[in-house]
Amino acid sequence: MGELSDVLSVIETAAAECADRDVEDEAFLAAMLFVRKNIEKGPMLSSAMLKALRVENQSIRRSEALRITRMIRTRAGL
Results as ranks from 00 to 15, higher is better:
residue 2 G to F: 07
residue 20 D to V: 00
residue 8 L to R: 10
residue 13 T to P: 01
residue 23 V to R: 04
residue 76 A to Y: 06
residue 23 V to K: 07
residue 33 L to Q: 15
residue 59 S to I: 12
residue 37 K to T: 06
residue 38 N to T: 08
residue 41 K to E: 11
residue 48 A to C: 01
residue 56 E to F: 09
residue 71 M to P: 01
residue 54 R to W: 06
residue 51 K to A: 14
residue 49 M to G: 02
residue 6 D to Y: 05
residue 46 S to D: 12
residue 21 R to Q: 14
residue 66 L to Q: 15
residue 43 P to A: 10
residue 56 E to D: 13
residue 44 M to V: 14
residue 1 M to T: 13
residue 65 A to G: 05
residue 20 D to K: 12
residue 68 I to P: 02
residue 22 D to I: 09
residue 42 G to F: 15
residue 35 V to P: 06
residue 38 N to I: 01
residue 74 T to S: 00
residue 1 M to V: 03
residue 12 E to Q: 00
residue 15 A to H: 04
residue 27 A to E: 15
residue 66 L to K: 15
residue 53 L to W: 13
residue 41 K to T: 05
residue 37 K to I: 01
residue 23 V to W: 09
residue 7 V to E: 08
residue 47 S to W: 14
residue 24 E to M: 14
residue 74 T to C: 00
residue 58 Q to K: 10
residue 51 K to H: 13
residue 1 M to I: 02
residue 56 E to S: 11
residue 67 R to F: 05
residue 19 A to V: 09
residue 74 T to I: 04
residue 72 I to M: 00
residue 36 R to N: 14
residue 70 R to E: 09
residue 49 M to V: 02
residue 12 E to S: 02
residue 17 E to M: 04
residue 50 L to R: 11
residue 69 T to L: 02
residue 63 S to A: 13
residue 16 A to P: 02
residue 19 A to D: 13
residue 30 A to I: 03
residue 27 A to N: 10
residue 65 A to D: 11
residue 9 S to F: 01
residue 11 I to M: 06
residue 36 R to F: 12
residue 11 I to A: 01
residue 63 S to I: 07
residue 37 K to R: 15
residue 76 A to D: 10
residue 30 A to M: 10
residue 48 A to G: 08
residue 7 V to R: 11
residue 68 I to F: 00
residue 4 L to R: 11
residue 13 T to A: 01
residue 30 A to T: 09
residue 18 C to F: 06
residue 60 I to A: 02
residue 66 L to C: 10
residue 28 F to S: 04
residue 78 L to Q: 03
residue 74 T to A: 02
residue 52 A to Q: 13
residue 72 I to V: 05
residue 17 E to N: 11
residue 1 M to P: 14
residue 9 S to H: 07
residue 57 N to W: 12
residue 25 D to E: 08
residue 33 L to E: 15
residue 20 D to L: 10
residue 14 A to I: 08
residue 53 L to E: 08
residue 34 F to M: 09
residue 70 R to D: 06
residue 22 D to L: 04
residue 72 I to H: 02
residue 33 L to N: 14
residue 27 A to Y: 07
residue 5 S to T: 06
residue 73 R to E: 10
residue 75 R to H: 06
residue 30 A to S: 15
residue 78 L to E: 07
residue 69 T to P: 01
residue 43 P to S: 04
residue 4 L to V: 01
residue 16 A to L: 12
residue 7 V to F: 10
residue 31 A to F: 09
residue 27 A to T: 02
residue 41 K to P: 07
residue 2 G to S: 03
residue 5 S to K: 03
residue 48 A to T: 02
residue 14 A to H: 10
residue 16 A to T: 05
residue 25 D to S: 03
residue 60 I to Y: 07
residue 26 E to G: 06
residue 24 E to C: 11
